[in-house]
Design a protein around this nucleic acid. Structure first.
Lengths: 135, 135
DNA sequence: TATAAAAGGGATCAAATTGGTCCTAAAGGT
DNA sequence: ACCTTTAGGACCAATTTGATCCCTTTTATA
């Protein structure tokens, strides 16, 4: 029930991107330095972003990353799920038969938790986080 | 962001206890068989329950476990936290300085997630789960 | 008062996950 | 050609998870 480093780094990294002037290309080395995150690790994270269409990547000289959409159209949920996988408080929310025969007794509760968490994270955009200067 | 086996076993085990006639002592072997959980592992889990005052244990012949309180006075949150530790979507909710200087930008969001999840789990008692015959 | 029946608690262990590095390949600019 | 930059795969150490084993302590009872 805890965000991993990967998730934290992902958020820090994409917030940095969102704070750049629109269209400005950022190097992974630059983002890593700014977000204080191991560069090679962050590179993997941004690969996921690129694959999922959160960021656009370009190679070679002058290459780097740009947000694929306005920061106001990227939700915290998308970013978290991009690297951590779907919000899933319990395995039983995947398949149908979680208990030994029939849905488990707590199924409905986990479903509710999932729905609520997804709702909260969907309600926060990267734009909001990027503007949010200090607490 | 996922319940572990330990948490699942804990819930299954305590639900079984709650389904017994009031005052009836259950052996760990009996609970393990009924809940289809590895016995030695479940023993550890019930040790936690005993320490935290969710169940009462007695040793020797005729010993075993009984709920320390009516099942209607034990919440799902207590059971989960007993074995998984506090509901904590992000490490930053522990200390004060999560970001490099000052609270991190997402701090408030994680706080909200934590509050909401705790609220949901606090609203479900073991009694409710134990009565809940099938979905 | 042995003895058997339970839980308590520590040590240990394999497998999976996490957190991260390294190297080579591919793509793009000069 | 050559340099720069991301893509992708292999790899690795540390931690966590999911257990098991063994010995100790407590307690009832034959």
């Amino acid at each position: 029930m805890e965000l991993t480093r990967k998730g934290e780094y992902a958020i820090r990294g994409i917030i940095y991107l969102a704070q750049q002037p629109p269209g400005r290309v950022s190097l992974i080395s630059e983002i890593a330095a700014a977000a204080e995150v191991p560069q090679t690790f962050l590179a993997k994270i941004f690969q996921s972003f690129a694959k999922l269409g959160l960021a656009t990547s370009s190679r070679g000289t002058g290459g780097g990353f740009v947000l694929a959409r306005p920061a106001s159209a990227i939700t915290l949920r998308e970013v978290v799920e991009a690297v951590e996988g779907p919000i899933l408080p319990n395995r039983c929310l995947l398949g149908s038969a979680c208990d030994r025969g029939g849905p488990c007794r707590v199924h409905a509760v986990w479903k509710q938790v999932q729905t609520e968490v997804v709702h909260i994270l969907d309600g926060v955009t990267i734009d909001t986080l990027a503007r949010n200067t200090e607490s």
